[in-house]
Write a protein that binds this DNA or RNA. Structure first.
Length: 404
DNA sequence: TCTGGGGTCCTAGGACCC
DNA sequence: TCTGGGGTCCTAGGACCC
């Protein structure tokens, strides 16, 4: 009954190998298992097997006791705003999910152990596991702190052997497990790295599509989120199989032209995107949600300090990565969760905190401040790497002297 | 019971230029 | 008095991802 859904491998999904025979790409997606929580379990091994959630700031850090033991905070002790960043599989079993409000999670699992987020530590382990993978398969696309795509196409080794070596290398370097999905493209590999978590290894062949991919919810497709899934549901489309049976014209009527075409292709397992090894950043930003909603006038002094501090942080981020940017943006979220943005493009690139602060101030002036403010953010985009800017400057100087 | 922080990409209207 | 089409940049908002 699913004969029309056979996976289509077009010529663009093939690469040339030494013997000149086209062969399908071998793209792996590697995803670390419950990454932040697993890193925390490395330093607090006594928490293994317990429901643990990672959320919030430092005030919930474990406290060392006089007898050498540690006193951990429980989720039920948490007060204030915030969301769950990660949960161990034991906590997930109680219904606690990433991005869930902490107060809601506390009702589901009041006794779960609560640990604060420690990004520097996760970044360290991120570098370790990526270096371990690179020692075996160097064609890596960075897609986050805990996941990567790897292009295995040009490596001579057997796919299963490669995947097992990569998993072992990650474990040796970090003590952590990961899950790997391998297929001819990023779309399918991303889906199948999730199929056997944790410590999974799934190699997807076209023959597996009906049993493994078709029954899944459309939301398992990377790029179909809550809004699109809801809209598809009103059309009676819930699974990937149902999506692949939908008329292109029906999708065109309800989604934009390009999104409809994209949906039509991904439902058939088609995805030509390359593994991008050296992507340049597009923006740097800093934002903060306040402990309580702040009044634009009464809390003016504190808001101004926070605003300036965000500008300084972004400026430091730019400088430390050797970038300059030309478009300065601000973001405000009000007490009713309505979010507005304003931006301003400068004539020249900058990484200077005072210049960024000045431009951000111009943006802020264009926002009517009638409600309390929940979040404030500053972003710099239209980036240029510092070394490229120098080249650009030299180029400009060549042109300008041409006068009579 | 409200909903973090860091990103990417897309759309769409208007300005402006040729 | 009416009035083209294409290209690029700027700005604002929104969906989505980890």
């Amino acid at each position: 009954m699913y004969h029309n859904l056979a996976i289509v491998l077009t010529s663009r999904q093939f690469v040339k190998v030494q013997n000149n025979n086209p062969s399908p790409r071998r793209i792996a997606h590697l995803d670390m298992d419950a990454f932040y929580a697993s890193v925390e379990l490395l330093r607090y091994p006594e928490l293994r097997g317990l429901p643990v959630v990672i959320a919030g700031r430092d005030e919930h850090a474990p406290v060392s006791q006089p007898d050498g033991s540690r006193r951990f905070y429980r989720l039920s002790e948490y007060v204030g705003r915030g969301v769950i960043t990660t949960a161990t599989y034991e906590a997930r079993a109680k219904g606690v999910l990433s991005a869930m409000g902490v107060m809601k999670a506390a009702r589901l699992a009041p006794d779960a152990i609560l640990l604060p987020v420690d990004f520097p530590r996760y970044r360290h382990y991120s570098k370790l596991f990526k270096a371990a993978v690179a020692s075996i398969a160097p064609q890596i696309e960075d897609t986050g702190i805990d996941e990567i795509y790897i292009d295995l196409s040009l490596l001579p080794d057997d796919t299963l052997m490669l995947a097992q070596r990569i998993k072992q290398a990650v474990r040796d370097a970090t003590g952590l497990t990961c899950s790997i999905g391998i297929s001819p493209n990023k779309l399918l590999s991303k889906i199948c790295s999730d199929l056997e978590k944790p410590d999974g290894l799934t190699i997807l062949t076209p023959g597996d599509i009906p049993s493994l991919i078709w029954p899944l919810s459309v939301q398992k497709i990377n790029g179909v989120g809550p809004k699109a899934a809801q809209k598809l549901a009103t059309l009676g489309i819930h699974t990937i199989a149902e999506l692949s049976r939908a008329d292109l014209s029906l999708l065109h009527d309800h989604f934009g032209n390009s999104y409809a075409t994209w949906l039509y292709e991904v439902a058939r397992g088609i995805d030509h995107r390359p593994v991008v090894v050296d992507a340049e950043p597009k923006s740097f930003s800093r934002e903060t949600t306040f402990e309580r909603d702040l009044h634009p006038q009464h809390d003016r002094v504190y808001l101004t300090e926070a605003f300036t501090s965000l500008c300084q942080q972004v400026a430091e981020d730019l400088s430390s990565k050797a970038y300059v940017g030309r478009t300065i943006s601000i973001k405000l979220r009000f007490e009713d969760f309505r979010t507005v943005t304003r931006d301003f493009s400068l004539a020249e690139h900058t990484a200077d905190a005072a210049v960024i602060r000045q431009a951000a101030g111009e943006c802020l002036r264009r926002v009517p401040l009638k409600k309390r403010i929940r979040l404030l953010g500053v972003k710099v985009s239209a980036l240029c790497a510092l070394h490229q800017l120098h080249a650009l400057g030299a180029y400009r100087q060549q042109e300008i002297p041409f006068t009579f």
